[in-house]
Design a binder for these strands. Structure first.
Lengths: 225, 225
DNA sequence: TCCCCATGTCATCAAATCCTCATGTGTCCC
DNA sequence: GGGACACATGAGGATTTGATGACATGGGGA
């Protein structure tokens, strides 16, 4: 979800880029993939990546030089180089120029995923993803909810419903949609489960009402009218 | 010479052991070299090593199993495996069992030195060997835990679980994740092993509760909330 | 070898959670 | 005003989940 660890892949060969991206994504990473140094530089500027996988040779330059320069500016995101060369000098060069690891082509994507995991662990884990509305904060990663700064303790269902309403803030969410997303696909609850949960939620979300009911259509999370 | 970085080499082939030792020594490391797991275990007991180079197969056992077991006890010194095998599964297995890097024979001693340097740097800069949360201190290197300054004696499992929770402080850690990291890969989800260990931990960690259970999701180490 | 302690297992307890039902309240349309 | 409808509310009970204590087992050290 929102708080996945984010990884950048810089590789000009499209097939390889795709294969690597797919593997890393299926390993649970959030992946950005670009084809040259210029694009990488632009995307990295925003920050937020826990690790970067660089092909050594790119259409607009050698990535080792790029990394070396950025290291001198204090850039510290872990880097893994993919290199076609197999000479020892090259390997050592990669390390001494700010690389944290390298992999020689051809390599296994599974192995790449394992190495990236190690590097990311080292870099610390991803940033919190927190949804906000008025004085309400929903931290999806930590499963925490705060209203006006105070921590609320919600049950699983309560959190699930609130989180879903939050992702659809300002929109009307129907009962069917809510059931579909927050309940297991089997239950055909005749009873008013949703109303019950919403009531408990309202009880815990003290303060100005945020969950508005739209008669005949569902609920809507919003600050005002 | 007193404060040189200290490295352990565990390799049964004498020629190779000598070659590696000489190279690492000339690279500025202080080197201890032994030929089997038993000797390694004895020498490692004293602590003080920043990195260990393990041959995969040793006369008295497979070093991967050894490292995996020690990781579960909370041992955290970076490890590099030397392996004759070149299959991808073996490589990945090395990582998931607590290895930080590996090298396939035949390898260049210069490259080995480069990798060892990286591992030692990681050990030094990476995470501090003592983790803190409120009045709780977990010294990963010494395997010591203090609460409000008083030393607690924890069993291996207890320490492993606490350390893992500590590295994920403030986050919710699921039972599966816990089992994956602190137990051998087989264990059935039948019994409540985790609950048992957590209970014992709570019993020893006197004072304000630090291990909070998040119903339906797992445990969370935190000061409040 | 024997004992002790760490660890895993089981049975049982306590509590949180969630669903259901019965009923109350408001709204809209005739 | 009176239904019909949609939602709100509150209580009770069933189910799930974690906590706890007792016990079995087994490996390591004295």
């Amino acid at each position: 979800m929102g708080n996945a660890v984010r990884v950048m892949v810089v590789e000009d060969n499209e097939d390889l880029r795709l294969a690597v991206s797919v593997e890393l994504a299926s390993a649970g990473f959030e992946v950005d993939a670009v084809g040259d140094l210029a694009a990488a530089h632009a995307a990295l500027g925003a920050g937020g990546h826990s690790c970067v996988v660089f092909d050594r040779m790119l259409p607009d330059g050698d990535s080792i030089g790029y990394v070396h320069r950025r290291r001198q500016e204090g850039w510290s995101v872990p880097v893994l180089f993919l290199t076609a060369r197999d000479s020892v000098e090259d390997r050592v060069a990669g390390f001494t120029h700010g690389g944290d690891d390298y992999l020689v082509k051809p390599f296994s994507v599974a192995e790449l995923a394992a190495r990236v995991r190690v590097l990311c662990r080292r870099a610390g884990l991803g940033r919190p993803s927190v949804l906000r509305l008025a004085d309400l904060e929903v931290d999806c990663a930590r499963r925490e909810v705060r209203r006006a700064g105070v921590l609320l303790t919600l049950s699983g269902k309560e959190f699930a419903v609130l989180e879903f309403l939050m992702t659809r803030a300002e929109q009307v969410v129907g009962r069917a949609e809510l059931i579909e997303h927050c309940w297991d696909a089997e239950n055909d609850p005749m009873a008013n489960v949703v109303e019950a949960v919403v009531k408990r939620l309202r009880g815990k979300l003290r303060g100005p009402e945020l969950i508005h009911t739209v008669r005949g259509r569902g609920y809507r999370l919003a600050t005002a009218g």
